[in-house]
Write a protein that binds this DNA or RNA. Structure first.
Lengths: 192, 192
DNA sequence: CGGTGTGAAGCGCTTCACAGCG
DNA sequence: CGCTGTGAAGCGCTTCACACCG
C-alpha cells in the first residue's frame, strides 16, 4: 500500500485485502498495540513499523536449508532477498557433486559439517527439503545441534522434542484439499 | 501403517501420529462414517478405504500448472506420482523456450492455449507458480476458463469470484512464523 | 480393564454492538 | 455521520466424560 502511495488506511480496507472482517483487523491491531484514529484510520507507514517491531527479527536471523534437490533449489531462489533479515545462509546436501559449490548464491556444505556451521553462524531455524524417508533423521540431527524451528516440506509428521516449532508445508495435502472442493463446486454447477 | 504390517489401530495411536487427541480422531472418523470396535480398534485397510471413498477423486482429476520457473519445476517433480488420481497434466509458461517441450514428464503449452487445453482435458484445478506481479492476472484468466480451485504460491492475496477455492502456500510467511517462535525459544533458553 | 461412539460442556477465536469522538 | 477501541455475546471446534461392551 505504501508503494501505491497510500498514507492512511481504514480497518475495512485492510479487511477486504486480507479477506477477513474489519472487527478482526481492529482486534489484531489491538494486540500489536498500534492505535489509529477514527478520523484518519491508521497511518500506513507507522502501522507497518509497529507490526515490524512486534514480528520482525531485530537483526539478521540466518536460516539453514537441508536438501538441495529440485525443491531445495526452488526454495533457495524463491526466498532469496524476500525478507531482508531472514536469509538462508547455509545449505546442506549429501551429494558430493553439490558440496563445496554455490547454488543461487548460497554455499552448500556436507552434512557432516552441519553442527559446526550451525553453531558458527548461530542458526536456529532450518528448512527440510529432503525425501520423506530421510526427513525424520534430518530433523533429529538438526534439533540436536540446537535448532528451534523447522519448516518441513516432506509429507511426514515429524516427531520432535516439544518446544521445537514445526511448520509443515504439505503441497500434496493442499492439492487434495483444493481438488476436493473444486469437485464439489463442479458438482454444484452441474446440479443447476 | 499398512506397509508396516499393521492390521488394527486404536484412536490414540492415530492421535499420536497426527499430533492430536484421541477424542479428535474418533470425532473425525465419526464424520467419515467408519466404525471401529472397542476390541480391535479400527481395521487399517478398511479405514483407509473408507477415508478414500470420502476424500479421493473417483477418477483421474487433472491439474494445470502455470509458471514453469524454478518453483514450477520443483512442484512438477514433487507432485509427480504422489497421488495416483491427482496429476499435473498440463503446464503453461510464456517463455517460448519452454513452450512445446516437456518438463518432468509434463507437456508445456503457451499461455494462449490455456482455455483450449483446460476445456479439452476437463481441468478444474490449477497451481499458480508465477511471479507475484502476474499472479492476479493469471488467476483471473484461469477462473474465466472455468477453474474452480487454485493453489497459489505467489505471496499475494488473490481476489477471485466467490465459490472459487484458493489455497495459499506462502513460504515467506511460514518462515517468518517459525523464525518468530524460534527466537522466543532461544530467548527462553537464555533466561534460564 | 481398555477400547469406541457420542451428548454435553468447555474454550478460544470471531463478531456484534456501541460509547466516544471530531 | 463514520470510524476506532473494546466489553460482551456468539459460534464452532475440541475435549470431557460416560454408557456400553468383550
Amino acid at each position: 500500500m505504501l508503494s501505491e502511495g497510500a498514507v492512511n488506511v481504514y480497518s475495512h480496507q485492510l479487511a477486504a485485502r486480507a479477506r477477513v472482517t474489519s472487527a478482526q483487523v481492529r482486534r489484531d491491531l489491538m494486540t500489536v498495540g498500534y492505535e489509529g484514529s477514527p478520523q484518519r484510520g491508521y497511518v500506513v507507514e507507522d502501522l507497518l513499523e509497529a507490526i515490524g517491531k512486534r514480528l520482525d527479527p531485530p537483526a539478521l536471523q540466518p536460516v539453514a536449508l537441508v536438501g538441495v534437490g529440485n525443491l531445495g533449489r526452488a526454495v533457495l531462489a524463491f526466498l532469496r532477498g524476500r525478507r531482508p533479515r531472514l536469509a538462508i545462509t547455509a545449505a546442506f546436501d549429501r551429494d558430493p557433486v553439490l558440496v563445496g559449490g554455490i547454488v543461487h548464491g548460497c554455499r552448500v556444505y556436507a552434512m557432516r559439517d552441519l553442527p559446526a556451521v550451525v553453531s558458527r553462524e548461530g542458526i536456529n531455524v532450518a528448512i527440510i527439503a529432503v525425501p520423506a524417508s530421510e526427513a525424520q533423521a534430518v530433523a533429529m540431527e538438526l534439533v540436536s545441534t540446537g535448532i528451534k524451528g523447522l519448516i518441513n516440506f516432506a509429507p511426514v509428521r515429524l516427531m520432535v522434542a516439544k518446544g521445537i516449532v514445526v511448520e509443515d508445508i504439505d503441497m500434496t495435502t493442499a492439492l487434495e484439499k483444493v481438488a476436493y472442493f473444486a469437485r464439489q463446486a463442479v458438482e454444484e454447477q452441474v446440479r443447476k
